[in-house]
């Protein structure tokens, strides 16, 4: 474990807590993409299949359970409890355009052609594009609540910090994982224009307005 990965995991947990609090406190999921949340739930389900077969550490197991439980709870809150506030019209990204390419790519490019490895690779590729429905929704509505932009900033920072973690591990442990690095770079790049808007607008107290 290194400071970059720990900071990344904490930013990830922080993002999930912000989102759950936003939905629970406002009893509304307006402005949140349910499709992205479904994709995140799928990412954790396909990545953490080894939860019961491989024990890495207490930290690792606790975080996996936390991510699985929180993503499930978020999907439940959005599609069941507060379904009346779910903005279906603006959440119109076709996620099959993400699922199919990620599945095909994970069958073609992976570390080992086994079920667990292909599913892990699928989850890595899917995670890199899972935020697209959310960013698409923000661009369609043209704005985002500040709490939603804090959520996106924390979520985008998590994988950016993981990139630093992989640089650290390459230097210190001389190991690297090209699949994770490639997907992580794509994932972080997708947030770049949001990061710019967040830093130039939201941090100055303005609302996040995307140029329509």
């Amino acid at each position: 474990m290194n400071i970059f990965r720990l900071a990344g995991d904490l930013a990830h947990v922080f993002a999930i807590i912000i989102l759950l609090l936003k939905i629970w406190k406002t009893r509304s999921c307006a402005g949140i993409s349910g499709k992205s949340q479904i994709l995140f739930a799928l990412v954790y389900l396909t990545r953490y299949l080894d939860l019961f077969t491989t024990y890495v550490s207490l930290y690792n197991s606790v975080m996996k359970v936390l991510f699985l439980a929180s993503s499930g709870a978020t999907v439940y809150l959005m599609y069941v409890k507060f379904r009346a506030t779910y903005d279906r019209n603006h959440d119109s990204f076709r996620i099959e355009f993400l699922l199919v390419p990620c599945l095909l790519l994970s069958l073609l490019i992976n570390h080992e052609f086994t079920v667990m490895e292909v599913l892990w690779t699928f989850s890595i590729y899917l995670e890199s594009v899972a935020i697209l429905p959310q960013l698409f929704m923000v661009s369609k509505t043209g704005e985002a609540e500040s709490i939603t932009s804090h959520y996106l900033f924390a979520l985008g920072s998590y994988r950016a910090l993981y990139l630093l973690n992989w640089v650290y591990r390459y230097i210190v442990e001389s190991h690297y994982d090209l699949i994770a690095i490639f997907a992580g770079i794509v994932q972080t790049i997708l947030y770049c224009d949001f990061f710019y808007l967040y830093i130039t607008k939201v941090l100055k107290g303005k609302k996040l307005q995307l140029p329509a």
């Binding site: 491989t54 973690n165 190991h175 690297y176 994982d177 090209l178």
Partner: peptide, 10 residues
């Protein structure tokens, strides 16, 4: 340097 999957990462 060795290319491998990091099994200890989330």
């Amino acid at each position: 340097a060795e290319e491998q999957r990091f099994k200890d990462e989330l």
